[in-house]
């Protein structure tokens, strides 16, 4: 019996050794992902890749808002019939009375209610090439976000930081962001209801 006792002892010790040695060694790991991010970004040197080549064909302009500096697409060249003064040769009220062909008939303003906003809240009837702030200051078409940010301050903050809106090109620096009017139609800023681009499954049986 002594012999088998000793065997049991040896086996027990072996078992313990295996148990101990197979413990996970994670001493050098961080306590949480936030710790890891904080620690590892302390000596961040930048990356070698750039997303610049992905927006080569888009004309960009750099803006600085608060502590954020980034690129947004230039707008004026994208508007179909800019400059507006090419048609708007006279002040607005004159164009309206002369009975000429109606323009912009397809624009139906669905942005706030009519007590709050109408065309001239943003457009300047006297100078159609510029936008107009609530206090009557001029705003460049390229910086139309300044117009939006008058009311949508929270969205503006989020957009500057990157929580609202979309990247252009990719995540890699330099940062390029779409500006408000790249996603929202300023006259009808809401997104429409529509059918999804793809269904979870085409198999009818699986559906409820």
């Amino acid at each position: 019996m002594n012999k088998s006792n000793r065997i049991i002892q040896v086996l027990g010790v072996l078992f313990l050794i295996i148990l101990v040695s197979s413990c996970k060694h994670k001493e050098d790991e961080y306590h949480s992902i936030t710790d890891k991010i904080r620690a590892k970004s302390k000596n961040y040197h930048g990356v070698t890749i750039s997303s610049e080549k992905y927006f080569d064909d888009i004309k960009m302009m750099e803006i600085t808002e608060g502590e954020h500096t980034f690129l947004i697409p230039e707008r004026k060249s994208q508007i179909k019939s800019f400059k507006c003064t090419e048609c708007h040769t006279k002040p607005l009220h004159k164009l309206q009375t002369e009975g000429v062909q109606k323009a912009h008939w397809d624009i139906a303003l669905k942005h706030a209610d009519l007590n709050t906003m109408n065309c001239i809240t943003c457009h300047n009837g006297e100078n159609m090439d510029e936008l107009k702030s609530l206090t009557g200051n001029q705003i460049d078409f390229n910086k139309s976000y300044k117009l939006c940010s008058q009311c949508h301050t929270k969205q503006f903050d989020d957009w500057k930081g990157g929580a609202h809106g979309k990247n252009i090109g990719g995540w890699a620096p330099p940062r390029a962001a779409m500006t408000c009017v790249n996603c929202h139609n300023p006259h009808k800023p809401h997104f429409e209801t529509r059918w999804p681009a793809r269904f979870n499954t085409q198999k009818i049986i699986d559906r409820k």
Binding site: S4, I7, L11, F15
Partner: peptide, 13 residues
């Protein structure tokens, strides 16, 4: 016995 008993004990564990 000396041959198979250790194996048997081991197999128990």
């Amino acid at each position: 016995k000396s041959v198979y008993v250790p194996g048997a004990i081991l197999s128990v564990f």
